[in-house]
Design a protein around this nucleic acid. Structure first.
Lengths: 133, 133
DNA sequence: ATGACTGCAAAGACTTTGCATCTTT
DNA sequence: AAAGATGCAAAGTCTTTGCAGTCAT
């Protein structure tokens, strides 16, 4: 565990912010959140630390949604639903992706499979309601 | 069917280029390919037409790989393998994603599910060999 | 002192867009 | 003429990076 000194305060805050939300935020969103508590935080620091956490496997990237990279503090494999209306990302309860599929993927490519991501896209409940109302 | 006039030549060429490869190219790759046959083609035109094709559902986007959007002329649902070593994208034979998962996704979110994408990430064969050699 | 973290601003990479031009009807 | 497609370059977004300053050991 890293000591919570002034030097690591922001780093810890960035990780804590990401871990404490299920909104799968962008770097900018995290920056905006922390700006309140740390008025002098910079976007560069957020990006630098997110890159670091990613390399260390402490967080994961969802890839880009609407042109912006989105992060997930939950590194357990799980399923995402992405709303194409509002770009929100929703976690779905763990769904079993058959292990046989991973094996076949490895066979078919002749390579090594590190991960498997199942993603649904569609229209979330709010967006559905907004359209019909 | 659109007439093949001079006006549509490039548009058609862009679509044909994408449809004729399984490399899941970026806009820039398509631009480079067509630059030979159409020396005065511009990157803006490639982007504009790809956006158009996407809206019309004639092609699909894979999302960004290594910071660059990648396109797929094959709109049938299928599975992708993305190599994190060289950013290559490989099609995998259609794998059955249990329909029950889609239903559950719709139920769990209370929204509408339009599509489901299964993506494997890992190291492709060439990259595996390169590492060990 | 040395190494680590950060703010700031500049640079970079990718994509979109405005405008003038050219083509088709 | 009017509508559509394109080249070109500028603008726009998001992300990375260089450098100087600060903090911990």
């Amino acid at each position: 565990m890293e000591p919570v000194t002034k030097q690591f305060k922001k780093r810890n805050a960035i990780l804590a912010c990401l871990k404490s939300t299920d909104s799968h935020p962008s770097a900018d969103w995290i920056y905006a959140q922390l700006k309140n508590e740390y008025p002098d935080i910079s976007l560069g620091t957020v990006y630098r630390n997110l890159t670091l956490f990613k390399q260390q496997g402490m967080i994961q990237s969802l890839g880009t949604v609407g042109g912006v990279e989105r992060f997930d503090g939950n590194t357990d494999p799980h399923v995402h639903f992405i709303c194409t209306g509002c770009d929100s990302v929703i976690d779905l309860p763990q769904m079993e992706v058959p292990q046989s599929l991973c094996s076949r993927a490895a066979e078919d490519t002749g390579g090594r499979v590190a991960a498997c991501q199942l993603t649904f896209t569609g229209t979330c409940q709010s967006c559905c309601l907004r359209k019909t109302s």
